[in-house]
Simulated assay, not measured.
Amino acid sequence: MNQYEKQDFGDNPIEVRESDHYEEEYVSGFVDKWDELIDWESRAKSEGDTIINILKERGVKKVLDVATGTGFNSVRLLQAGFDVVSADGSAEMLVKAFDNARDHGYLMRTVQADWRWMNKDIHDKFDAVICLGNSFTHLFDEGDRRKALAEFYTLLKHDGVLLLDQRNYDAILDDGYSSKHAHYYCGDTVSVFPEHVDEGLARFRYEFSDGSVYNLNMFPLRKDYTRKLLYEVGFQEITTLGDFKETYKEDDPDFFLHVAEKS
């Protein structure tokens, strides 16, 4: 067994609160099962064309997907005719994404890049940057979050847009966890739930049908805090959708989608 086969959270997993730890969490076995968790077909059906329409309404042609994962969003955008560059901090994820894109008939352009220093690896400007799949919550340090958002902002053209999503951590922190699994994690054979939550950590447990278990440690971003950071790094107008709807009760959505305009 190589070093990537098993996750390592040490003796006290709930004390693991570092931005750089995500690379050790996305081990090959977990990455191989990620698509079982998402269920591409079910997710595409539930999500509809909301993301695609948001981008098309703004005349977007060139997109940077900074949290490609196994490639779901990148492939959907390629299918819709967008020019896409796919980035991720995990080499394991990029390999899987490239293979998935190839299976759908596309040659994916991939870049392994850390959000905090993206301009070091990506020398271009984009009409849109997308950071989806609750990925932004891997950053535990506020300085890291500000640095990453500033990098996204810089990579956008002057009238560009950032799409960034997150779990509804307000509801989890204030009311406890419940999830309809209606939009993001649609796999019926996977159980997902937080085994520990406090203001500085949401530790999620992923149980798969073959008995395998994996964890992710994430920072529970509150919605208004994320919006505040977006404003403070320079985005002028921010609209927040709840499960892809403009109107919602605050504790109702599983996920929020922030649409941040640079103008």
Rank of each mutant, 00 (worst) to 15 (best):
G69T: 03
F72V: 08
N73P: 01
V75R: 02
G81F: 01
F82H: 01
S86D: 03
S86L: 06
D88C: 04
D88S: 03
E92I: 07
M93P: 00
V95K: 15
K96E: 14
A97W: 03
A97T: 06
D99F: 01
D99H: 04
N100H: 08
N100T: 05
A101R: 06
D103A: 12
Y106T: 13
Y106S: 08
R109C: 06
R109Q: 15
Q112M: 11
A113S: 15
D114Q: 14
D114Y: 14
W117E: 15
M118Q: 02
N119P: 08
D121G: 14
H123M: 13
D124V: 03
D127I: 10
A128W: 06
A128P: 12
V129H: 10
C131M: 05
L132E: 08
L132P: 02
S135W: 10
F136V: 13
F136W: 07
F136D: 15
L139H: 11
E142G: 09
R145L: 07
K147W: 00
A148E: 00
L155W: 08
H158D: 14
H158Q: 13
D159R: 10
Q166K: 08
N168A: 13
I172G: 01
I172D: 01
D174K: 14
S179I: 06
H181Y: 05
H181S: 05
A182Y: 15
Y185N: 05
Y185L: 09
C186V: 06
D188N: 10
D188I: 06
V190H: 03
V192H: 00
F208K: 01
G211D: 11
V213I: 10
